[in-house]
Structures are given as structure tokens and as C-alpha cells.
Design a protein around this nucleic acid. Structure first.
Length: 519
RNA sequence: GGCGCUUUCGUCUAGCGGCUAGGACACAUGCCUCUCACGCAUGGAACACGGGUUCGAUUCCCGUAGGCGCUACCA
């Protein structure tokens, strides 16, 4: 363990498609850990499976982190002194190191074809390529090294397997789970070098890169826990045991309901994104929704994800990135999988929505309005956001009226139509209209209309200053009926503010129309 | 099947031998108000089961059961 060296961690995705939200959380934890310890965060691309490479995936991943505010110090697209950072560009390095293992007798060539192995697995229930079977297979151990070299020279496809000595308890020290012990007898002679594309497998490339890149802590998903003893054995075989990184295996993200881990299908089924950004599959053309496009704020996504599997131990839940960096503690991560409670994600987004200024929200709102066919300025959009702040909609369901909180800027539009579109009809059967529009109302509204027409200053404060005393003097309570005129129903902001937003002309026009319609 | 990890309200979790088992989301109710709300207050809701260890277990140990993962020339 290099205790005195600087913390160096990495996030190393495969460019096989859009980044899964679970991967985002893994990256986030690495980032928080690195920043807290004043360490370095490396971005590496693990593209050793040439068959699964997806164009655009790498750029997608980079853009996702840019949006989320997760930054790297070294890696693909950034550079650094430990490159190259794409594994496909490091082939020569792996050739050298796999040779080292071969020369030391810690690995051997194997010529069994995938078909032969598949047949063997089919016939033998618990077939495993290990100490019990390797001497009955076609490899350099049974054929001899000379014969193996001759076959390779002739162009025979081969793989390189790691030779695992059976009967040893291999201990892995995990920062989250403590001591994990697996007997080497249950491990198989893992393929380190593939014949299919002449590249190393994850296991070999990962260990070589983490060593060469001086990674001090490997923070990754729990799915890697079963292969971590193999990794420990590889470090030892290379003679790197004393600088082996510390491991921390994170709990997985589970489906919101039912069994199993969170998948893309759950998002489709329940209506929430499982990817940070919208993804357009280059081959199928299928579009998967993303948090960004759905109107989530990056701070909310980060905060939500950070608390899925870890918490600071106090009652504070709304935490900025710098709060998270200050409070994060790997050893306090929970050990069991966390159900993905996307409803809590709504709440987090709402918390950040409420904390963001009207002006900052305005550009997004302008886009929402434009999509609904409403052209307006950022300033007016900001005013509406201000007036609609913290609003809740009441709508009818088969179970009766329900209230729904606003969690997204886009939720605002159905609630604030009346700011931009005048009521076209009035529903006399509407409870609010019926209650507040009686025979005497039209006359009262005419009085109010004429009073409003005399005002020369039509700001909210000026209208209030003029109307409040006038109303008291006349003995009127015109607000609800006035609301019927301007909104058409029983919702919306303070009437003076609304009138000011609409302007004198539009206010009077809507009143005339309502008086004409409702009599 | 084998191996490993795991188990507190519906969900995310706090708890690190002695607590009325705390918070948040969701849900329900009340208060407030020119409307709808926000907000505030209140309420229901959990230690998987069985053995130990101990004066005492949610907490430590061992089983059982459930959950999750791995078991590819994928990562």
C-alpha cells in the first residue's frame, strides 16, 4: 500500500452504449472521494471488446459528466502523463505484460476452441477450466511449449489463461465490506488474452492499467466483488502486491419494484430515465430518454444519486456538490442494494427548482412555452415563474381529486396557460364560477372595470393602492369574480399581480368578454 | 447447482449492548388564505425467523429463510 502517495482513482466505462445511471453513481463516488482527499480522478475507456463498440458512446459519456459537473484530471479528452487512456491504444503494453506472466509460468497458451468448450460445458454440469481439468485440455501445459509456439507460428488461434493454484484462501480487503475470503479452488483459469480480437480481457487490462496509472483506490460496483480475488492474484503474479490498490465495492441499484437490478426497461415501464442524457441508438434508431431532456437539474440528479447507498449520518438531505465532497465517507456506504426510488428524485428536483431564481429558470421556461406555441421574452417568463412559484395543481382522478407537486419547469405550463391565453369560454357549472358569479356580479365587474380603466400606473402595487381602498369604500369583495374574468377558474396568483402582468388593455378586454359571456 | 455479498417503517436510511428505535420520500388530517397553493403542525408505518453470548440484544456469534451478484475469448 502506498500510504504516502496521492490518492488516484478512476472511472473506466466501456463505450458500449449510453452510461447507465448506476455507472453515474459509481463515477460520482469516485469523484467525491478524489476531491475530498485532494487526489486525482482519471477517465479511462475500456474498449477491449471490439465487438461491442458503439460509435458515439464515448462522446456521450463525456458530455454526461460535463452536464453533471463531474470533472476529471486525466484521461481521454483531457490528457495526462499516464496515457494513452484508451485501452485499445495500449495493446503493446499488454503484450509486454502478458509475456511477463507467460515467461514466469503464471499463464499458459490454450488452443481449445469456443465450440469445444461449449460442448464440454454442455456435457459436464460443473465444468470449469481449472487445476482439475487443465491437464486434459489442449494447451501449452499438455502439448509442451515448443509445440504451442509452433501452432501459434502456424496461425492457430489461441488464448492465454491465468494459471491458478488451487487450495488457497484469497483475502480481499474491502473498505465497505471488510475482509472477503474466497478459496482459489473455485476460481477458473481466466482468459487473459482473447484470440477473437487479439486484445486482453478486462481482468488483465484493468490490473495493468491500474498499476501503471498508479491508482490507489478501486471504487466500483458490487458485480466485481466475485472476481476481485482473481485481481488480487494477478497483482501478486506481477509482483505488485505491495502497491495493490484498496478496493471498495458499491451496492447495486435495484428496480423500484419487483426483483432484480435496475434496467432500462424499468424506466420505460414506470416513466423515468435511466440515462443521464437522451440517447439515440445508432443502429436501431431507438430513443431513450435522459434526465437532462426530462427537465431534471444536474444538482438534483447528483444529490439524489449520492444518497442512494450513502448518507452523511445527519438529517440533512439537500446537499450541494461541495457539501457532498466535504461529508462523503466511503466506509459509511451501505452494503445492501438500494431500490431506485424515482419518486424521491422528483422531490429532489423540486427542492432545487425552488432554490433557483426566476431569472435562472426563465430560459428553460421559454423553451417549454415555445413548444406549446407561446412566444415570450425571458423577462416575462421569469415574472410568470415568480408568480407560479411553489404552485400545486389539483386534478381529478378516478379516486377523486389529487394534488400534485410541481417538480419540473414543464409542469408549470398546464397551470399557467391563462397568463398567455385568455379564457375562450366559461363553464357555468364549474363550482368556483357558480359560487362567485351571481346576478349582481356583472354590474360589480363593470364598476371594477371602469375603475381600472382610470388608472395610469398599472403596476401591481399601484393597482392595489388604488383598488384596495376603493373596494372597502364600495363594500365589495370582487376578487373571485375578477379571477373568473381573467383566469376562467379558481386558480392562479394574486389578482393584482396577474392584472399587472396582463397589462391594462388585456385586463379590460378579458373583463368585457367575461361580462358579455356570463351576463 | 456452486461461490460470494446482504437483511431496521411501502422506499432511502440513522443506530455502532441499555433509546418512547430518529429523519426524509410517499400517504392521511388540521391550521393559514381574495382562489388554487406554498408553508407549518400532527398521524399511521419497521428491527426476517430460530438459537446462542450477556444482567441486558435492533446492535456481537452461529444457523435457517429471503434478496442481490458472479459463475463468457462482456465489461
Amino acid at each position: 500500500m502506498s500510504n504516502n502517495s496521492k490518492v488516484r482513482v478512476r472511472f473506466a466505462p466501456s463505450p458500449t452504449g449510453p452510461l447507465h445511471i448506476g455507472g453515474v453513481r459509481t463515477a460520482l463516488y469516485n469523484y467525491l472521494f478524489a476531491r475530498q482527499r485532494g487526489g486525482e480522478f482519471i477517465f479511462r475507456i475500456e474498449d477491449t471488446d471490439s465487438t461491442r463498440f458503439v460509435p458515439g458512446a464515448e462522446a456521450y459519456i463525456i458530455e454526461s459528466f460535463r452536464w453533471l459537473g463531474i470533472t476529471f484530471d486525466e484521461g481521454v479528452g483531457i490528457g495526462g502523463s499516464h496515457g494513452p487512456y484508451r485501452q485499445s491504444e495500449r495493446r503493446d503494453i499488454y503484450v509486454r505484460y502478458v509475456g511477463q506472466l507467460l515467461d514466469a509460468g503464471r499463464a499458459y497458451y490454450a488452443f481449445d476452441t469456443p465450440e469445444e468448450l461449449a460442448a464440454r460445458r454442455e456435457h459436464e454440469a460443473n465444468f470449469q477450466y481449472d487445476a482439475s481439468t487443465r491437464m486434459s485440455m489442449r494447451n501449452s501445459l499438455t502439448l509442451g511449449l515448443d509445440e504451442a509456439r509452433r501452432l501459434i507460428a502456424d496461425g492457430t488461434p489461441y488464448v492465454v489463461r491465468f494459471l491458478i493454484e488451487p487450495g488457497e484462501d484469497v483475502h480481499v480487503s474491502d473498505l465497505i465490506r471488510g475482509d472477503v475470503c474466497i478459496n482459489s479452488s473455485v476460481l477458473d483459469d481466466k482468459v487473459l488474452w482473447k484470440s477473437a480480437d487479439g486484445l486482453p480481457t478486462y481482468h488483465l487490462a484493468n490490473i495493468v492499467d491500474d498499476h501503471l496509472m498508479e491508482v490507489t483506490h478501486v471504487i466500483r460496483g458490487e458485480e466485481w466483488l466475485p472476481s476481485s480475488p482473481l485481481h488480487v492474484l494477478l497483482y501478486r503474479a506481477f509482483g505488485w502486491a505491495d502497491t495493490m490498490p484498496q478496493f471498495a465495492h458499491l451496492p447495486l441499484l435495484l428496480k423500484p419494484d419487483g426483483k432484480g437490478k435496475l434496467s432500462k426497461r424499468d424506466g420505460d415501464r414506470l416513466g423515468f430515465p435511466v440515462f443521464p442524457l437522451e440517447w439515440h441508438d445508432p443502429t436501431s434508431g431507438e430513443v431513450s430518454s435522459g434526465y437532462r431532456e426530462r427537465g431534471y437539474m444536474p444538482e438534483a440528479v447528483v444529490n439524489f444519486l449520492a444518497l442512494l447507498g450513502w448518507n452523511p449520518g445527519d438529517d440533512q438531505e439537500v446537499l450541494s456538490m461541495s457539501d457532498l465532497i466535504a461529508k462523503f465517507d466511503l466506509t459509511k456506504c451501505s452494503k445492501n442494494g438500494a431500490r431506485f426510488d424515482y419518486v424521491k428524485g422528483f422531490w429532489f428536483n423540486r427542492e432545487y427548482l425552488m432554490r433557483r431564481s426566476n431569472e435562472a429558470l426563465a430560459p428553460d421556461f421559454v423553451k417549454v412555452l415555445a413548444a406549446a406555441g407561446i412566444e415570450t421574452t425571458a423577462a416575462r417568463a421569469a415574472t410568470v415563474v415568480g408568480l407560479m412559484r411553489d404552485k400545486v395543481i389539483t386534478y381529478d382522478t378516478k379516486d377523486g381529486p389529487r394534488k400534485r407537486n410541481i417538480s419540473f419547469v414543464s409542469d408549470l405550463w398546464p397551470l399557467c396557460r391563462f397568463f398567455f391565453v385568455a379564457p375562450a369560454t366559461f363553464d357555468r357549472d364549474d363550482k368556483f364560477v357558480r359560487k362567485n358569479w351571481t346576478e349582481a356580479t356583472a354590474a360589480e365587474m363593470r364598476l371594477l372595470r371602469d375603475k381600472l380603466a382610470t388608472l395610469t400606473d398599472f403596476t401591481s402595487d399601484a393597482i392595489k393602492a388604488a383598488i384596495d381602498p376603493w373596494v372597502a369604500e364600495q363594500g365589495l369583495k370582487p376578487w373571485n369574480a375578477w379571477r373568473v374574468c381573467l383566469v376562467g377558474e379558481g386558480q392562479g396568483p394574486d389578482m393584482y399581480a396577474l392584472a399587472a402582468f396582463l397589462g391594462q388593455e388585456e385586463t379590460l378586454r378579458r373583463m368585457d368578454f367575461a361580462i358579455a359571456q356570463l351576463g
